[in-house]
Design a protein around this nucleic acid. Structure first.
Lengths: 212, 212, 212, 212
DNA sequence: GATGAATGAGCCTTCATTCAT
DNA sequence: CATGAATGAAGGCTCATTCAT
């Protein structure tokens, strides 16, 4: 049975996804992918230039989308900030972060897992810190607004924000690695952000007093 | 360029640390370590039996200490639980988790990073899930106590607890990966736990109402 | 220089045979085998899982056959013993040993050499002592029967039997190492057994006198 | 405690003997020898140029002695042959082979074991076939004399003689490998030669008839 | 289009040997 | 005299990648 090109490509991608998921980019074996896709390793190179290219084909689109998302969102956030940053604004903010992340998770399907958790050794391995930077910039706004008249953020505060952002992303990555059912994913990220939001709120009270 | 033994051993450990940090246990190359340490790969085997032994030399002591810590702590936690689990007990609990983790972090220096973040493929690779399980058991107690008469934890709640525990550990790992100054480490973990504690408190309120 | 699979496999086996013959299992070098077969060492692993598997491919079938042979033979020998062990029985016995060994030799071709003489370090390295034990048990029966009323074998006699058995097998191994033409093999083992038989007969006379 | 040179040399030789005996020439480890001799591997090279030289020091003298022995003996054998080769001469011959081998075994002490059984990979690995050639020349004389008027030996007979000689030496080697007590060694070689002698006698009868 | 044989560089590891100390 | 650190070549083996078929 002669297999059409697109079908073969899909078969490879499917097998590659599974292999990358199980072994990570570095440890993934082209041979195993080929075997799982029902062909020889050599044939994979007719469809993809090399291992990196194959990984690209799976996570690249998502990465592009993420990039667009991120940029768009940062602008929206700008708008929110401009309109003041009180408790309500903050609520909107957290709902927004939540919506964004959940949207990303649900829209991206399984490839997010690879991008976030299995990209070590590939050119995407910095994605986590990028995402972290994204959350970081939003949290920075929140803290700055809360501090208000108390002045700009000091180094300690900036470091705390960095840590919280990173941890949030690590948590999201962990969720993505463990659960693939999108409803579950949504719920968990919601809960995670809720906990973070609650905790951050509490920490911000100190500024309220200072400002009050 | 004859060097004294201890110096060479140190040079190897230094180079190995850097290599493990960059590539992780599996992908680390003995040859690269040797080159970075200014010697031939063969010479490394005069100082360490094999790759595993070399990794051991860096993270083994910390792991032992962690094991001791964990065991001790579980017993202490038991004691706390027995004495009821109200807000005060919970506060003690969180301070305790904090103290334990911070103590570990401060005692460990940079090797914690390898143990937590770069041990995949080594015999230590389960450390994160161990730590997570450890936090999980404590969080489970907290939630159970809070729920009290409302009955045992359901599946969703157990999953949420798992996620929160994992995220906490991921956050600690991230901190360990980024900062090696023990004061900074202590502060950040404190802050992280504070945020988690605050967020969890907020989430537990729903049970208080149910029980009330 | 693309070659068909079976040809390559044969080329590897041929080169491996030669290498094993010259260097023995332990000292044999996969790289040398590859070079002799006109390829890279890595390619050998497309045909054989590892060094042991390669050795297996050459001597394994023979070993299996030997195992079958040995088992069958031991049962036959049992039958002979039960029917008394006079000169005629002994003659049958020697003819039988002869037939067995010769059958094995003829069926085996050159691989017997590897199995008997070059298997040190492989899982077959005990074959000589197995074969020796096999011959030993038969010789023990012969001596015991000859001694008859003179009582059981003493330690010296048991040691002598061990030595004779071992020497017979060493002789067979030597023959296998030197000649691969099955007719020649047959003749030589026949002659060897004939000499042993004659010599043993002579030594047994002393018992005949004792028993007489 | 400063150790005198000769003592050190002896210690090395002793350790080397044990290592060669256990592992054979090829697999013997200079490091293990050094450790067993209570020193560093480097120091061995102050006493012996290299591994081969060390093996030489143990086995070389015996080899020289063997060479002298062999030559001498061949001449003696010549004398025996000249005086006819009847049953009595043959008896003398076998007693002589026996005496020679046993003398060699007993005089040589443990080093014969290395020379005969553990020299694979060294320049002495041909010793067995040399010894075989030696026995072969004697057996050739025996058979030739027995055949007498029946003409010179044909190829089959020469091959048989070669095989018998080799087997005898293989047997002696086996004995040397297994027993180190010189009395036991003597007895066993005696018995082996007795069996061979008896067997060969029997085979020679055919010529007697032909000649008669 | 696809195969799969082949390569070559790399992996961890061992070891006889050298040489600065 | 002796040490032991260091080398370099070799060991078995894996794997992404290429290319004749």
């Amino acid at each position: 049975m002669q297999v059409l090109k697109e079908e073969v490509r899909s078969a490879i991608l499917l097998a590659a996804y599974e292999e990358f998921r199980q072994s990570g980019y570095s440890e993934a074996s082209i041979r195993r992918i080929a075997a799982a896709a029902g062909m020889t390793s050599g044939n994979i190179y007719r469809y993809f230039r090399n291992k990196e290219d194959l990984f690209d084909a799976i996570v690249g689109p998502l990465y592009s989308e993420y990039s667009r998302y991120a940029q768009e969102y940062l602008q929206t956030a700008e708008g929110i900030v401009t309109g003041g940053w009180d408790v309500q604004a903050r609520t909107i903010f957290f709902e927004r972060v939540q919506a964004t992340l959940i949207g990303l998770l649900m829209a991206s399907g399984p490839s997010l897992l690879l991008l976030l958790c299995r990209s070590e050794g590939s050119k995407y391995e910095s994605i986590r810190s990028e995402l972290t930077g994204f959350v970081e910039s939003l949290l920075t706004k929140t803290f700055s607004a809360a501090k208000a008249a108390a002045g700009p953020l000091n180094e300690n505060e900036r470091i705390e924000i960095g840590m919280l952002s990173a941890t949030l992303i690590e948590g999201v990555a962990w969720i993505a690695a463990k659960y693939h059912d999108s409803e579950r994913l949504g719920t968990l990220v919601e809960q995670l952000i809720d906990v973070f939001g609650g905790g951050v709120e509490k920490r911000l009270l100190v500024y309220r007093d200072l400002n009050g």
